[in-house]
Nucleic acid binder design. Structure first.
Lengths: 118, 118
DNA sequence: CACCAATATAGCAATTCTCATATATATGTC
DNA sequence: GACATATATATGAGAATTGCTATATTGGTG
C-alpha cells in the first residue's frame, strides 16, 4: 500500500461516507439491508416524495453505495458493495451498544453550539 | 429501542458520517488514531493551511467527532467517541481487504458518470 | 395507438460547504 | 508592555447539496 493508493482510498472512502451522511439516505440503506427493494417500496418505507427518493437513490448509486436493476416498469435497488455492508454492521453494532448502555447517546450526538460557520 | 430513538440515532449517525465524509478530514482522523495531536502537527501532517485546518477541526468538534484540550498556546485534538473508533476500525479493515485483494477498489470507488444533479 | 403505472430528469430557490484572505485572541518570553 | 508563537474567528465568493414542482421516459395493457 503506497501513498498514491492511500490518497485514492481516502478519496473513495470519503465519498462513500459522505453519501451515507444524510438521515434519509441512512434509512434507505437500512431498509435495503434485508435485500433489494423497488423505488416505490423504499418511498413508502421512508415517507419521502417520489422525486426526492429517486434523487437520493441516484446520488447513492453514483457514489457506488447502491446498485440497481430494472424489471418491467420497476427498478430494484440494492447495496452495492461489501464496504457498505461492513459499515452498516458497524453502525448496527453501535446502535446495539447504545441499547445495552455500553455507549452513551452523548458519545455520538453533538450538543455543541454552532457558530455561523459551524 | 423505539421509533423516536431510531430517528435520533439516524440524525446523529448521519451527522457523524457526513463529518467524516471529506478526504482531508478523514486523513486527520487517521492521524489522530495513534493519539492526540496539536493543530500544528495535524496541519503539517496533511499539508493544509492553518485556517482551513482549524475550520475542519472545529467542524468535527461540533459534530462530536473530535475533542480538544488546551495546554499553553497549543490545542490538542483527539478522537471523541467509541463510535468514531469503531468506524475507523471498520475503514481500516476495508483497507486491509483491499490490500489482500479480498475487496476490489471498484467496490468502493465510483467510476459512474454524473449528471448535473449527481 | 391511447393510457396508466413506475421511475427518472430538469430547473429553480434556499441553504450549506469549502477554501482563501485578513484579522483577532491568548499565552509565553524578554 | 512589546513581541513572537499557536490557534481561532470573521467574512466573502464559488461550488455543492437539498427539496420542490413540473415534465419526461419507459414498459405494460387494452
Amino acid at each position: 500500500m503506497n501513498a498514491v493508493n492511500n490518497i485514492v482510498f481516502f478519496e473513495a472512502a470519503s465519498k462513500v461516507l459522505k453519501a451515507l451522511g444524510h438521515p434519509e439516505r441512512l434509512k434507505i440503506i437500512e431498509l435495503l439491508q434485508t435485500g433489494e427493494q423497488t423505488v416505490g417500496r423504499i418511498q413508502q418505507g421512508i415517507g419521502l416524495s417520489q422525486p426526492v427518493t429517486s434523487q437520493h437513490l441516484r446520488f447513492m448509486q453514483n457514489n457506488n453505495i447502491l446498485a440497481s436493476r430494472k424489471e418491467g416498469t420497476s427498478t430494484y435497488y440494492s447495496l452495492a458493495s461489501d464496504m457498505i455492508r461492513k459499515l452498516l454492521e458497524c453502525m448496527n453494532s453501535c446502535r446495539l451498544d447504545l441499547e445495552t448502555g455500553e455507549m452513551q447517546m452523548k458519545d455520538i450526538f453533538p450538543e455543541s453550539k454552532r457558530s455561523k460557520h459551524e
